[in-house]
Amino acid sequence: MKNLTKDTTGNHTPHIIIVGGTSGIGLALALHHQTLGWQVSVVGSSAAKIADINSHYPAIVTYVCDLTEPNQMRTLLDNLSGIPFQRLIYSAGSYTNERIHHLNQTDSDQMLAINLQAFEQAFRWASSQLKQQLKKQYQSLDVSKGDRPSLVCIASIAGTIDYPYASLYAKSKRAMIAIASAYRAALVPYDIQVNCIASGYIDTQALRDLNDGDASHKPFIMSTQAAVNHIMQAIDDDVELAIFPRSMRYITSALNHLPKPVLNWILHSKLDKAK
């Protein structure tokens, strides 16, 4: 395992941990931070993806962990404890299309574990670690205002719409948004930044796999690089809940302003599976 290092100028190299950082937007954010000079650690469940990163990006520190397994999650956090970091991004996610498939027990357990339970466990651990670091090291690290410690989670625009027929995926992402907001309020006295990202469709391999290899028909779909730019700007600007692209933000805002019976009818008939 690698620890916080110094560059040739004597400045400390910032360290980021990305949970769910072996593919998709998580890997894109990992590579972006690497280009910025950050030390990067990623966590993923696929041994094959980990091996690929080790081969192509040997400077990235990797950890294999099945987030649905409590013992593996505890071991991961124990291994990471005591290693200084400045930013944690929770980018792991699980999705089952409930408009097409009725949830089975395995899918239900996996979505709840990854989208909510492991996320909250990671944020609880990370906030505790950062508070300990601030007590022991903040002055010696000479962290400037622009380098505030930060916790970031990748939610979904699906979690920004409040209606009773929402899927488990949407409900778990809505809960993620609420939990991130609570952590943001709780960590203000520590000057720890918390940001939640609620994006629309991003053209990742996972999305393409869910759509027979082509997700171009998805409304307002954006490239991975465009999403990275939005996310980094939201972190730089310390946006509590960053909803993008703009067109989707307007649509969801308009939907949330509709009378509840109208919203429920629209989304129940257009988005959900037949009951």
Rank of each mutant, 00 (worst) to 15 (best):
A118P: 05
L267N: 10
P189S: 08
H32V: 00
T204F: 07
D209R: 15
I231M: 11
A166F: 08
G82Q: 04
A118V: 05
A59W: 00
S46H: 10
G20A: 10
W265I: 02
I202M: 07
H56L: 12
Q225C: 05
T160H: 00
L116D: 05
V239H: 07
T62P: 00
A122M: 14
K171Q: 14
S128M: 07
M73F: 12
V19R: 06
I266E: 08
I154D: 08
K2D: 06
E98F: 03
N71F: 03
N71H: 08
V42T: 06
C65V: 07
G200P: 10
P149T: 03
W265R: 13
I266P: 08
N104C: 11
S81Q: 12
N256I: 05
I243P: 08
A180Q: 02
N229T: 13
F123C: 05
V40A: 10
L77E: 04
K260A: 15
T35V: 03
S108I: 04
T252R: 12
T35L: 06
Q86P: 10
H102F: 02
Q34Y: 03
L103V: 09
A47F: 01
I17C: 06
Y163A: 02
R148I: 01
A113Q: 13
Q72K: 08
Q39F: 03
H32W: 13
G24S: 05
A215E: 07
L210F: 11
K171P: 00
H102D: 09
R249S: 07
N97M: 12
Y169H: 09
A226Q: 13
I179F: 11
Y163L: 01
H230V: 02
D209N: 15
H12F: 14
I179N: 09
